[in-house]
Simulated assay, not measured.
Amino acid sequence: MRVRILGSAAGGGIPQWNCACAGCAAARRSGAHRTQDGVAVTGDGTAWYLVNASPDLRVQLVSAGDLDPGPGRRDTPIRGVLLTTAELDHTAGLLGLREAGRLDLTATATVLAALPLIPILRRYTDLRTHELPIGAPLALDGGLTVRALVVGAKVPRYADPCPDHRPDDAWVTALRIGDERTGRSFVYATCLPAWTDAFDAFLAGADAALLDGTFSTEDEPARAAGLTRTPREMGHLPIAGALPALRRHPGVRFLFGHLNNTNPYAAGPAPVEVARDGQELLL
């Protein structure tokens, strides 16, 4: 299995177009830019699945190489998109796929029902939506399977408030993608509000995991941006909060993505491995 990290930043990327904070200013000076969070996964090198579709998706696909179209004029190795949230930074890139001859979109029933882009996409392409089951494996092309675990209940701003919301709505999921031929597996959880027992069990035995690296510490939003909400209140476990749990999984390669522009680890030394745009994992 191959996992290509398409983007490693939180919403807005680094630098953000309208931000002159220290992190964005440093990124402009150094050219150390990061596009918004997402990965591409394949089991056989032919059939690829996108995990989320950021607003930067076109640039990410053009830069990837392995995701180029061909040999036919409209052939593409992309077999579908798996969504872990309904947030705009994970879904707005779907509009860039509207010229596909067919587009397979897999997400929880909660996300599919909320996503305002679905009726728009149906006007442009043969859109086929598939409900992502919770817990049970779903077969993908290329010998892969995916399992989902609900990890959060953060509602996108455009969908809140809504009187139809229920406490058990599956707004935010982690994915475990496995290769049936090799037994290797990869966990994607870049929006993780808490490290629960259920997530710990979901992660156990994986070969690699891309985790929530939005913030470095609990006080980062207040210290760097003057915000009153904590990372956990925004749906993100800070890296410092995850570190103790990593020791229980010594066989897992951990990377942190979805970095916010305030996170000093985006451009400086870090106590963990920080994902990079274009990085590839071979599992």
Rank of each mutant, 00 (worst) to 15 (best):
G213V: 05
E218N: 06
A194H: 09
A153G: 06
T230Y: 09
P137H: 05
T190W: 15
G143N: 12
H165Q: 14
D179S: 00
A139C: 08
L140A: 12
I177A: 05
T228A: 08
P137V: 05
D212Y: 00
L210S: 07
D141V: 07
R176H: 02
V155D: 12
D200N: 11
L149H: 10
G135W: 13
T214M: 15
L115Q: 15
V155P: 04
R184S: 03
V150L: 15
R229M: 14
G152Y: 06
V151L: 13
P231S: 12
M234G: 09
L227S: 03
T190L: 12
A206Q: 15
A225H: 09
V187N: 10
G178S: 14
E220A: 03
V172S: 09
D200S: 14
R232K: 08
D164K: 07
A206K: 15
T217S: 13
P221C: 02
L140V: 10
D168C: 03
T214L: 11
D207M: 06
R166L: 11
H130N: 10
L175Y: 06
R123W: 01
R122Y: 00
A159T: 05
H165M: 07
L211C: 11
Y124K: 01
H130T: 11
T182C: 03
D219I: 04
L115P: 02
W171T: 03
L121H: 00
L203R: 00
D168K: 08
V155S: 03
G142E: 08
L203E: 05
R157P: 05
T182R: 00
R181P: 06
R157I: 09
L175H: 04
A170D: 14
T217Q: 12
A204T: 14
D207V: 08
H236M: 06
V150W: 10
D212T: 03
H130M: 10
P167Y: 06
D207W: 12
K154P: 04
R166H: 08
R157S: 10
T196Y: 08
A225N: 01
P133I: 09
L121P: 02
P119G: 07
F199H: 02
T145Q: 11
A208V: 14
L127Y: 02
